[in-house]
Simulated assay, not measured.
Amino acid sequence: MDASTARAVLHYVLAGGCRIAVTGTAALDPSRGELVLLPAAARHRISPLPGLRAVSPPSTAAGGTGPADPADPLGPAVGIAALDGPGGPVRLLSLRTGYDPRAVRPLVAGLPRAVLLERRRVEAAPLLRDTLGLLAEPGRRPGPGDRLLVLRAFEAALALAAGPRPPGAAHPHPGIDRTVAAIETRYAEPWTVDTLAREAGMSRSSFTAAFREAVGTSPARHLTARRIREAARLLAETGLPQSAVPARVGYRSRVGFHLAFRTAYGTTPGEYRAAAPRRA
């Protein structure tokens, strides 16, 4: 992992409840079905509830019992751990991933060091819910695709965390939820601000203002960031011809794609692909 790669950690509670104490911020108490996202892998401790006996975050790979690989600063991509506490057994699915911070800067900016995603929000996000369910399957063995699955879970959780505020917060609007989900999963469609506003069921002006307030950036920039993030993944992780990448992520103009990619990553798509083995 090079210096340009950031780290993230996710903890998904499979059973029971626990306390996650994060350095520099208030502790969180997730229960079954809830997810805690640490977008910068902040230092933290995990304790069972109600007895707060602190333990280290689990680092055991799913299906195994060995320690983390010392050559890998993140540890295994997928880990499942059981904690014993007075309140009953606690089971956690812990995920670790690296990512390029430039690709998700608009989403990460402004997020706290730890974000709790309630069970109803996780269950309402099919991509995140299904990926977590797959990674937590009993008896599942670690595989070469784990890191890609974990990265997909992180991106889905990040989009959810950076999306509209939960009910009770200022200016919630379910249409923004739909739009954020559409951008995350249907980025290749020929979206415009007008069609995104229709997806949200709002006027263009109201939608643009509400989206910026909720997400922290404009709809167009959020869409561009998602498309370019997927393009970077295709270039680095697949053999898809470079000429086919723009259309795959929703660009009709190769020139426009190249300009957007260079703006996001400071390099051309070809140079990014050539450097991918070194990043890996």
Rank of each mutant, 00 (worst) to 15 (best):
L127S: 06
S47V: 06
T217D: 05
E189S: 11
A114H: 03
S59N: 12
R141M: 15
G87K: 01
L148Q: 14
R119M: 07
H11C: 09
S47L: 08
P50A: 11
H11W: 09
H11M: 07
V215A: 08
P57Q: 05
E118F: 13
Y12L: 14
G201A: 11
E230G: 01
A21W: 01
A21D: 10
R227T: 08
T97V: 15
R113V: 10
V215T: 09
A225M: 04
A260F: 00
D130V: 10
R186N: 13
D84L: 11
A136R: 03
F207W: 05
A275W: 04
L149K: 04
R43N: 11
P241K: 13
T208Q: 13
A27R: 09
L28D: 10
P70R: 06
F257T: 04
D177T: 14
P57L: 14
I20Q: 04
S206F: 14
A15P: 01
R229K: 05
A280S: 14
F261E: 02
G63F: 08
T267E: 10
L35F: 04
S31G: 15
A153I: 04
P112R: 06
P48D: 09
D84A: 15
R141L: 15
D146G: 05
A6P: 00
G51H: 04
A157P: 01
A42Q: 04
R273V: 10
A232D: 03
L240A: 14
P76T: 04
D177H: 11
L37T: 01
R147C: 06
V249N: 00
G168Q: 03
L93R: 00
L52C: 02
R252L: 12
H11Q: 07
I183Q: 10
V215S: 05
S206L: 10
E118P: 02
A125G: 02
I183H: 00
S203Q: 07
